[in-house]
Write a protein that binds this DNA or RNA. Structure first.
Lengths: 230, 230
DNA sequence: CCGATGTTTCGCTGCACGTCGAAACGAGCG
DNA sequence: CGCTCGTTTCGACGTGCAGCGAAACATCGG
């Protein structure tokens, strides 16, 4: 992040100043779980008005502590990188409890569902983070790309969709999940993956909702690929 | 430190506020090497008047970041404990690359340095992990304790600090190294080990940084104790 | 094209706090 | 005892900035 040529103590002071405001501290702590949240929600969490929150978010953004992702008329803010997360963790403060899931939502829908035409929900988020972590998925320019080891693993897990190598050329788009507030794979890559998983019977569409129901076999395959639900 | 029952984000904000002032940040950074300095000197370092410095020192004292020791008409300020030092180190180090070098800072500093008053950096981490692995160091309740075989090995490696057995009664505190992001030994045990190593000439303090320079002889002794750098 | 919703910008007010000089306090010293 | 020096307290000034409401902007839905 900010690699200015300022003397050390100025850098430290600037960093401290960003934490010094309870509203900003609250926002950062909420985002410590890796979630990405829209400005309005962060305003609510911090207990300030939308205008004030916007100013705080701008400062955190300029300070390099946050990154923003525009999606429709929402702007999702998240911690800039895991270095920032580590700094915050280093203060040994207990992390904020996970946000409660929206009332009245179907648990199956939270678990896995289609977002447009790709996999979302806990399962989609778990797949994305697990694959990012092991380098099977890497951000590239405007989106993300699957890497060769992932294709090998997919084939090893019984992938049948014909040209598995074709996946390497599809662009994945980071998409923020509504219930989880975290990244999952959309775009052509996400759609292709989801279609093939449906075809192979790893997932099945629920009859009257957008929920996706993983089969026992599917769960095994996912586990084999490093993806597991709690 | 602040053990108040306040919500987390207030604690974080208070901590940040203490760092937010360049004068205070400068004072803390100067004290990061474990030194204790009189108020006047800290005022000079911070570039403010005596009155201003006094106010800052009072705030840092009330905030639990500093401790004071009265001696004659001087008042020597130092960091309150090595927990504070660890926090500061975690925040200050990554943003303190003095050399225009890529994200990593001074190589000597990465290799071995003081964290508060104990050994940190690659060497500190290597020592901790090697000794934990062979059972010379074991976590016990709130910290870690050296085990008898370690003392024997130290003596065998030419340990001269008088009552080597005394080390068994010192509490070691796990301290997270920022550059390595791994555990090393702090607390009274870490300080005692480091002091003795300095005294024995295994390590030497760099003149104008917190780096510790291992001598050839020291490296041999470390290797003898199962500790080696790549 | 129009309203609803999410977000940012602008203008303003009020407070917290960093800064200093002067004065007070306390410890050493002759 | 009176002098000096290191430090803290006091009082006053200036400013940075958090906060809000209103208005501007952007995007989605119809």
């Amino acid at each position: 992040m900010s690699r200015s040529g300022l003397p050390n103590h100025y850098q430290l002071a600037e960093f401290g100043a960003l934490l010094a405001e309870p509203a900003r501290a609250a926002m950062l702590l909420v985002l410590l779980d890796g979630s990405a949240r829209p400005a309005g929600e962060l305003a609510r969490v911090a207990g300030v008005g939308a205008a004030t929150a916007s100013a705080h978010l701008k400062r955190l953004l300029d300070g390099g502590l946050l990154a923003v992702q525009v999606q429709g008329r929402h702007r999702y803010y998240r911690l800039a990188d895991d270095e920032v997360a580590a700094w915050l963790e280093a203060m040994a403060l207990p992390r904020a409890p996970k946000a409660p899931r929206p009332p009245g939502s179907d648990p199956a829908l939270c678990r896995a569902r289609t977002c447009y035409r790709h996999l979302a929900g806990e399962l989609g988020v778990a797949m994305c983070s697990a694959w990012l972590e092991r380098g099977w998925l890497q951000s590239a320019g405007d989106g993300m790309r699957l890497q060769a080891p992932a294709v090998e693993a997919l084939v090893g897990a019984g992938w049948q969709a014909e040209p598995a190598g074709h996946l390497l050329r599809l662009r994945g788009r980071g998409c923020i999940d509504w219930t989880e507030r975290r990244l999952h794979v959309g775009g052509p890559l996400g759609v292709a993956l989801t279609d093939a998983m449906l075809e192979a019977g790893w997932l099945r569409r629920a009859s009257r909702s957008r929920a996706l129901l993983p089969s026992d076999d599917g769960l095994r395959r996912f586990a084999q690929l490093g993806v597991r639900l709690d």
